[in-house]
Design a protein around this nucleic acid. Structure first.
Length: 387
DNA sequence: GATCCACGGGAATACACGGATG
DNA sequence: CATCCGTGTATTCCCGTGGATC
């Protein structure tokens, strides 16, 4: 690039409308207020939830593949329901036959953020009670008693949605059920991938997006996140096709494409940008929400792992050495190594044992990243900047 | 003093291989 | 030939520690 080109590029980025208006609009971990393309499913969900307006409602289980809009739909619905009164305590007031008003509370809990029995109870109690609930200094048993008291004292109907059950880092659905079923006047709605075989509840299935629905999802997001003409309609269709029904992956690729193009100083997203973007989203891909919900130091290790040269990822040992020495992580090599093994255990990375063993000793494993790396970098770095 | 949670670090174990042993 | 052993790596496991907060 010569000087004139450099100057021209600066002028362009300074004066021209920016390619990316709003990364959040494209982020797979951000859900819209109004979900797109899930109308019929939303209706069935409402059918299930509706009895809660009048009385206690049955327990339920929402299931379906990754990127089929489960979280998007349920979280949008619950935030509407919780916000309908505008009251601080997340309740809807409906008039019953007798004319008395009775509150029904709708609470959405992400099991990725509430990873222990304690945290699960805390999340429910905290959104239910007026005063804030301490996060330390009291035991899980005490917390549970307080929750029981709260439920009893107000005789309110409570519906709790617990999202992302059954992942490596989160509670199993059966565990959530064991915790919540004994609580009177509380009904639960678990959301997970697997069909709930051993749970005797009403199941609500989400199926993967059809092609045209996924195109709609992307089109809506792109129009609010990117400059007009940043992507052609044909490119959006291509991304949707590539997504193969998975909105998470399709959005991750779209987000990445915008980021590649912006980084390169392009005025619109080129086919080569899209190709590079797709390469940064492995298939199958682990949910970014899972990765971003990990403890801070794990995320730092992951961030450093992405930044390594490919050959440094040729063995767990060398990756751990490199990360511990200059990866911006204040952990010993031994600990980094253990973290790396944990990450592969839960599927966030994958260990691939080298086929040809050269030399002595057990052959090392190469580490593959199984989540959208570019999106992770952008979101992770963005979080840091805001601090 | 209690409590939760993430961390820390090494000890124990598994595995691959070649060579020795029964 | 089957098994064991030694060596060097890779991988798993366990449990105490300490910060932060009540």
């Amino acid at each position: 690039m010569n000087l004139r080109e450099r100057i021209a590029r600066r002028q362009r980025t300074d004066n021209a409308p920016r390619l990316v208006h709003d990364y959040d609009a494209l982020s797979p971990v951000v859900h819209l207020e109004e979900p797109i393309g899930r109308g019929p499913t939303l209706e069935r969900l409402l059918d299930h939830v509706e009895p809660a307006f009048e009385d206690s409602s049955p327990n339920g289980y929402v299931y379906g593949p990754k990127g089929s809009g489960k979280s998007a739909t349920v979280s949008a619905l619950f935030s509407h329901l919780a916000g309908m009164t505008g009251a601080s305590r997340s309740a809807i007031y409906t008039t019953t036959r007798g004319g008395a008003s009775r509150p029904t509370a709708f609470i959405y809990v992400d099991a990725r953020a509430a990873r222990s029995d304690f945290a699960l109870h805390h999340a429910v109690l905290d959104s239910l009670s007026e005063e804030s609930v301490p996060e330390q200094g009291l035991g899980t048993a005490q917390l549970r008693e307080r929750l029981e008291d709260e439920l009893h004292a107000y005789d309110r109907s409570v519906m709790v949605a617990v999202d992302h059950v059954g992942e490596p880092e989160t509670h199993e659905a059966t565990e959530v059920v064991e915790l919540f079923s004994p609580l009177s006047s509380l009904s639960w709605l678990c959301i997970g991938r697997e069909r709930p075989d051993d749970l005797d509840v009403h199941g609500l299935e989400f199926s993967a997006y059809r092609h045209h629905a996924l195109v709609d999802v992307l089109t809506g997001r792109v129009s609010s996140g990117l400059a007009r003409h940043a992507l052609t309609h044909e490119q959006v269709r291509e991304l949707a096709e590539w997504g193969d029904g998975d909105a998470h992956d399709a959005l991750a690729a779209t987000f990445s494409a915008a980021d590649v193009a912006r980084e390169a100083g392009h005025e619109s997203i080129l086919p080569s940008d899209v190709d590079r973007a797709m390469e940064s989203v492995p298939r199958p891909s682990v949910s970014l929400g899972r990765v971003l919900a990990l403890p801070e130091n794990r995320k730092r290790v992951i961030r450093a792992l992405i930044a390594l040269d490919a050959n440094q990822r040729d063995s767990v040992g060398s990756a751990a050495d490199a990360i511990a020495s200059d990866g911006g992580v204040d952990l010993s090599t031994a600990t980094v190594k253990r973290v790396l093994y944990e990450l592969s255990e839960t599927g966030i990375t994958r260990r691939v044992t080298h086929a040809e063993t050269e030399g002595i000793g057990r052959p090392p494993s190469r580490l593959e990243l199984r989540f959208p790396t570019r999106v992770f970098e952008r979101l992770f770095d963005g979080e840091r900047r805001r601090d």
